[in-house]
């Protein structure tokens, strides 16, 4: 409880406290009430960043989770040769430090030195331009999917392992095929895991920071300082020395994330009860 208070409650309270002040280079620290919040809700940069991670969430998370689900079902089907190799192979990207992963992908994406450039040279026109305005968000989504698909696959897979084999045998005796088993047994058994994975992914999307922040050195104008709300808060706080406003942005994004995660959980569990 003490640990919880120190590591969770205290920073939260302190952030809220910070968000009520404004510390200026000239004039010092003054209490401004809810001014920072008023400013944040009218802040186009914050809105742009929030909408961007929202769009990212809507596209990337379903793709990643469906892929992870397919992989988990495939491994669980026991029909896959070398399934343990497959499993560890998919999970391995999660073990690669995020920074290293992004640097590696940044190199692959490079149109001068990387794979994208080689492909373009081979086909004779600019087929792959991952680091251009149209594709950069997809390029980031690809990295995130690569990084976290295996992790989600493992969550699903362990949920599937918890299903008793008696159930499958009973189903087989009743004449159920593989797809019937997946639809009627495996997917319902996965509901809890799906809800958890979705919530984790939502939180992860709203906190998108590492990937765009590192790719920024390759495309400094495409990825702005307010590309995601987290990048915006970081730049405000550590470069702009606007700690108070950064705290405000962080709190607002935290509340939004919590609300969405809560709604997902509520819907997920209510559906289960029905």
């Amino acid at each position: 409880m003490v640990v919880f208070a120190l590591t969770f409650i205290a920073p939260l309270v302190y952030s809220v406290y910070l968000s009520l002040f404004r510390d200026q280079l000239v004039g010092g620290n003054v209490f401004v009430g809810l001014d920072n919040y008023a400013q944040a809700f009218a802040d186009e940069k914050l809105l742009e960043g929030a909408l961007r991670v929202g769009a990212f969430l809507a596209v990337q998370v379903p793709i990643m989770l469906v892929l992870a689900l397919i992989a988990a079902l495939a491994i669980d089907s026991k029909r896959l040769a070398g399934s343990s190799l497959f499993r560890i192979g998919l999970f391995l990207p999660y073990a690669v430090p995020g920074v290293v992963a992004v640097l590696m992908w940044g190199f692959i994406y490079s149109e001068r030195l990387g794979l994208a450039g080689d492909v373009n040279d081979t086909v004779g026109f600019d087929l792959m331009t991952p680091l251009s305005g149209d594709w950069i968000l997809f390029a980031i989504g690809n990295i995130v999917t690569w990084e976290f698909m295996g992790y989600n696959m493992l969550i699903f897979y362990s949920a599937l392992r918890a299903v008793s084999h008696d159930v499958y045998e009973a189903a087989a005796i009743d004449g159920a095929g593989q797809f019937r088993i997946i639809w009627n047994i495996k997917l319902p058994a996965l509901r809890g895991a799906l809800v958890i994975a979705t919530i984790f992914s939502i939180i992860g999307s709203f906190q998108l920071f590492n990937e765009p922040n590192i790719l920024k050195s390759l495309v400094p104008t495409l990825i702005t300082t307010f590309y995601t709300p987290n990048m915006y808060a970081y730049n405000l706080s550590f470069v702009g020395q606007q700690v108070n406003y950064a705290a405000t942005v962080a709190i607002i994004m935290g509340v939004i994330t919590a609300v969405i995660a809560y709604v997902v959980q509520l819907r997920g569990t209510r559906g289960g009860a029905r």
Binding site: L25, T221, T224, T225, V239, G240, Q241
Partner: peptide, 20 residues
């Protein structure tokens, strides 16, 4: 500027967009 570091950080956001 007395806040040149911050000013530089938003240069790509503003002047840089003209290049894009």
């Amino acid at each position: 500027l007395p806040w040149q570091a911050y000013a530089n950080s938003i240069y790509p956001d503003t002047v840089g967009q003209a290049y894009l």
